[in-house]
Design a protein around this nucleic acid. Sequence first.
DNA 1: ACTTGTTGACTGAATGTTCAGTCTAGAAAC
DNA 2: GTTTCTAGACTGAACATTCAGTCAACAAGT
Lengths: 223, 223
Amino acid sequence: MTDRVGDGAEMSVTADQRRAQMMSAALQVISERGYADTRIADVAERAGTSPALVIYYFKTKDQLLTEAIRQYEDTWYAVGQRRMASLPTASARIEEIVAMNTLPEADPEPGSSWQLWLDFWAQAARNGDVATVRRKSDERWRAEIAQLVLAGQEAGEFADVDPVSFAVCLSALLDGLTIQIALEDPGVDPVGAYELSMQFVAGRLGFTWTPGRGRDGVTPEGS
Amino acid sequence: MTDRVGDGAEMSVTADQRRAQMMSAALQVISERGYADTRIADVAERAGTSPALVIYYFKTKDQLLTEAIRQYEDTWYAVGQRRMASLPTASARIEEIVAMNTLPEADPEPGSSWQLWLDFWAQAARNGDVATVRRKSDERWRAEIAQLVLAGQEAGEFADVDPVSFAVCLSALLDGLTIQIALEDPGVDPVGAYELSMQFVAGRLGFTWTPGRGRDGVTPEGS
DNA sequence: ACTTGTTGACTGAATGTTCAGTCTAGAAAC
DNA sequence: GTTTCTAGACTGAACATTCAGTCAACAAGT
């Protein structure tokens, strides 16, 4: 199953690629069938290999799923960081965080799904490794938000609120909305959740925000 | 559900008791081992019976677990309703809702646990019945909150906010905090979550709230 | 009183399936 | 020729569900 193409350039599948391939397959299957109902055979099939090979690379099923989740977290965070870096103002960055947690991606990767988070949380309750991953992730995001708020305050964009409390509050709100969105609650659609969150953010941080489609409809509001 | 003793059928008492016993056992096991790792044998053992009897009462494992969750939801809501009824002001009632979602119960029933909610949500993503239960439950609580806000506004206790948006927002916030509390996030303890939520509520609804231990530290703040 | 029939509650021992993980051996890579 | 990959066949255990009844209570029928 090694694919050789043209000159001997490394087209052969390296171990790392295989692992990545399998983790990606795992995420797809988890988001379709749920963590508990994900079988090694499913992942193998999705990855185009055999169950035995999956075990060859990941000693156990649990390790596969745990690592897959860890990797998902990491790339999710990395994508977030990259987007933050490309945005100029603190308010635009916060808006991006809100959007990432409520609006569907324009280019949805396979194996990404809001439902994944529900499985993720449920799993964190009993699996120590997953719990650690989640804790770290949550702390990272909260720190990100708090630091953003601080920066915004120093730039005069934001009102004077406690950055840490605000971060806890906003991330909890977004998590809660993620649940509704993932479960397709008829009372909470993505766009509504997005606007609700932004209204909350704007209200708390003291800037006005207009729901208009264009990004960065932000007007600083000094006294 | 009530037993008519008199003319005719009243002998289903034992059967109902058994079912209740089994559902309670199921909830205990789910909250200990997680939904997916709950075996019929566990439930049977906890209920002091045999696996076969469990299947005798609930055709399938899935039905047992689903009904257990439905029942949990219902009693949770009923308890909430009872407590609401015993409180005089809208603000006290909202405070009770917040407390129910953040603070541990004084007398924790066996088989009640925050972690249960995580399993519940994850399950709702794939199991249509559970999804329906959850949707109904969420709608009930949001309606409760909205109606409470309306009542408070009419009584002059609360500021003029959109009750429905507020309900969505608060219930999402509480759900999000439930996740952190269930997973024992070091950054979010129950009391902190409680105070954070109440600050949010008070800020939004325009009354001042003091974190003091005593219930109902509420001061209306009309112009 | 005492058989007989009926029914609901209950059980222990199968049954059958589903899977995670192993084994073996062959194909590539080095 | 030795190490690294890979897959097909296999095993063993875990578990949900079924089955073939037992047991106790109660109700006529005699």
